[in-house]
Structures are given as structure tokens and as C-alpha cells.
Computed example of a mutant assay.
Amino acid sequence: MRRNPFEEFEEMIDRMSQQFDQSGMSTLETVPIDMQDHGDEYEVIADLPGFASDDIELTFSEGTLHLDASREEETEEGSEEAGRYIHRERRESVSRSIRVPEPVDEDGITASFNNGALTIRLPKEEADEGHTIDIS
């Protein structure tokens, strides 16, 4: 009896995904974001459905916003074996790094989380007027 070619293709994709996961390389999963420039600040909105605000860690360093989210794996209560996934796309952890094009006021960064959407506001740093250089 011949196997379904679609099953073979899905198995191949699953094997490739597992190899990427084991190598530490990113697969197709990522945190989708929108980034807008509002003149005096940048606004980043990231979609994190299924995560709680306590699951999210947000850091900013050297002009890059780092977003990490992780949650406990869901298992069926009362069962030692939760079952075998047929198809799986929802991840227990995701991360994303976003380079910000201009310097921002790190102390003024704020974030809010509502209905699976994380909104981060990054106020731009005041432009330095420069200074006079004495010539000797």
C-alpha cells in the first residue's frame, strides 16, 4: 500500500523543524511586531497571544529592544503522558530583538499588555545641541 505523499511531506517538515530547534537556529516562528515613529517616540506593538504579562521579559541595551516570553508547557491534568501532537505551532517560548534606529530615553520606556498585545513606548532622546570646541 502506498503512503500518502502529503504525510511524507509533513514528516519531512517536522524533522527539519526539530533539527532547527536542536541547533538553536530560529524556525519560521517569530513574534510579529509593528513599529511606528510618532515623532517624539517609537511605538512597538508585539503579538503574544497565550502569554501572560508575567511570562514576558523586556530589556533594552545598546539600542536594541529584547523581548523574551516563555510559559509552562500545557499538559493534561492527571495524566503522566499528555498525548502525542499531530501538529504543533504554538511555542512555549519566543524571543525577538528589535533594533531602534535612534537613541531613546531608556528611563522613559514604558510597556503595557492587553489582550495578547504588548505595547512598548520608547521616547526619543533629546537631540544634543553640541558644544563648542576651543582651538589652541
Score class of each variant (00 low, 15 high):
Met12Ala: 11
Ser53Val: 13
Glu80Ala: 09
Glu10Val: 13
Asp68Tyr: 12
Thr27Lys: 07
Gly63His: 06
Ala46Glu: 03
Thr110Gly: 08
Pro103Gln: 08
Glu81Cys: 01
Ser70Gln: 14
Arg91Ile: 01
Glu74Cys: 01
Gly63Trp: 02
Gly39Ile: 04
Glu102Met: 09
Gln22Pro: 01
His38Phe: 10
His66Lys: 10
Glu106Ala: 15
Pro103Lys: 08
Asp54Lys: 10
Thr75Met: 11
His87Cys: 03
Thr59Pro: 01
Gly24Val: 04
Glu7Val: 13
Arg88Asn: 12
Gly83Ser: 07
Gly83Pro: 09
Arg88Lys: 12
Ile98Arg: 02
Arg88Trp: 00
Gly50Thr: 03
Leu28Pro: 00
Ile56Thr: 01
Asp54Gln: 12
Glu10Arg: 10
Pro103Cys: 04
Ile109Gly: 05
Glu73Gly: 13
Ser112Ile: 04
Leu65Met: 14
Asp107Leu: 05
Gly108Glu: 12
Glu81Ala: 04
Arg15Lys: 14
Ile13Ala: 09
Gly108Met: 09
Gly50Leu: 03
Pro103Glu: 11
Ser26His: 08
Ala52Ile: 00
Glu76Tyr: 09
Val31His: 02
Gly108Ala: 15
His66Leu: 04
Ile56Gln: 02
Ala69Asp: 00
Leu28Val: 10
His66Pro: 01
Val94Ser: 03
Arg15Ser: 07
Asp47Pro: 00
Val94Phe: 06
Ala52Met: 08
Ile33Gln: 02
Glu89Val: 14
Glu7Met: 10
Met16Ser: 11
Thr75Trp: 08
Glu89Tyr: 11
Val44Glu: 01
His87Gln: 10
Asp68Gln: 10
Glu10Met: 11
Ala69Gln: 02
Thr64Tyr: 03
Ser93Val: 00
Met12Val: 08
